[in-house]
Design a protein around this nucleic acid. Structure first.
Length: 307
RNA sequence: CGCGGGGUAGAGCAGUUGGUAGCUCGUCGGGCUCAUAACCCGGAGGUCGUGUGGUUCAAGUCCCACCCCCGCAA
């Protein structure tokens, strides 16, 4: 099977690897253009590009998929199937429908819930207890295509987005492998998406500041949903602190935001009379470290407030 | 040349107007205790990111270059 792979971030990499491992002929890889990233605006290639080049694959990084040029390239590649995994661009119908088997997408949620670009994080932010990966036959809408296969996984109460990302990334590769095999065998039935839908938009920094008047569970979900990126934040003694890891604590009568204990973890009172126990954090300009290490060098005392 | 913070004992930090380093945790030994993550006493452990650089009688502390880490912004 001649396959064109379209993907960009780390999440896509296991899928690409799996296609190669399964012996498919990856005739081309589309990925986002290199972008200025990080300090000094160093031009950084997306992870899929790096991986593709290591395997000697042809890489294409068009700015637009709608100007005819991309379609021309695709025609020359003559794929039997397009595989799209977190590519980051909305594809027009002529691109999607060019291959004999059309285009298949791997999405990190149980569709039709959590369509959009940040399904992993929103599942955790909303406190979902299970999620999964779905493959679908793409149409022009955003994650609205008919569903092919899916796999489920529970979300433990302390799992972070980063951890779930890695799990779903591998699961996605497996679902993809199964999907392609089933397509080749011609025994796959597409199921229209029905039922409750919701949308998982891109994360923004406005989600980061913690409001300790919310319940401990809400704060905890915010922290793990935004961990490791972009990370929930709070202010302590005028400095911004990123918070990466918390656990649900016991009851307290302290005011929201007040630190009630700081021996091994930093326990903060929330709005519902319970605490969250911070175990991993990062002060602006400093490295990420455990609460224990943080407390060793910084004098934090019970009674202080997070804002 | 996007803006900014930082590299000092295993870890996290301090180090004032330049005079060869200190705190907390950990660690090792001893003590107290029914017991302990608690407490007491004592010890080990650092060529202060690199340059065999510059200034100086003297630099962790000032100047220069380079390497690395991090926050913002993208």
């Amino acid at each position: 099977m001649r396959i064109v792979f379209m993907g960009t971030p780390d999440f896509s990499v296991p899928c690409l690897r799996r296609l190669l491992q399964d012996g498919h002929e990856v005739v081309g890889v589309f990925t986002q253009p290199d972008k200025p990233k990080g300090r000094g605006y160093a031009l950084t290639p997306p992870p899929v590009k790096t991986e593709a080049l290591q395997h000697g694959l042809s890489v294409f990084q068009p700015k637009s998929m709608r100007d005819g040029e991309a379609l021309g390239i695709l025609k020359e590649l003559r794929p039997d199937l397009n595989i799209v995994v977190a590519y980051g661009k909305i594809l027009p119908a002529d691109i999607l429908n060019l291959p004999m088997y059309g285009s298949v997408n791997i999405h990190a949620s149980l569709l039709p819930k959590y369509r959009g670009s940040a399904p992993i994080q929103w599942c955790i932010l909303n406190g979902e207890t299970k999620t999964g990966v779905t493959s679908m036959q793409m149409d022009e809408g955003v994650d609205t295509g008919d569903m092919l296969l899916h796999a489920e996984t529970p979300i433990p109460i302390d799992m972070t987005s980063g951890e779930l990302h890695d799990v779903l990334s591998e699961m996605g590769a497996q679902v993809l492998s199964d999907t392609v095999r089933a397509i080749e065998a011609g025994k796959l039935q597409a199921i229209p998406q029905t039922g409750e839908t919701c949308y998982a938009p891109m994360l923004t920094k406005t989600l980061c500041p913690i409001d300790f008047t919310k319940s401990a569970l809400q704060v905890h979900n915010q922290v793990r949903g935004l961990s490791p990126w972009p990370a929930a934040t709070a202010e302590l003694a005028g400095k911004r602190v990123k918070i990466f890891k918390t656990a649900l604590g016991g009851e307290t009568s302290a005011a929201p935001g007040q630190i009630v204990a700081c021996s091994d973890t930093i326990d903060v009172a929330c709005g519902d009379g319970h605490t969250v126990c911070i175990s991993e954090l990062q002060l602006e300009g400093k490295k990420r470290m455990s609460a224990h290490d943080f407390l060793t060098g910084h004098s934090v005392t019970a009674g202080e407030y997070f804002q």
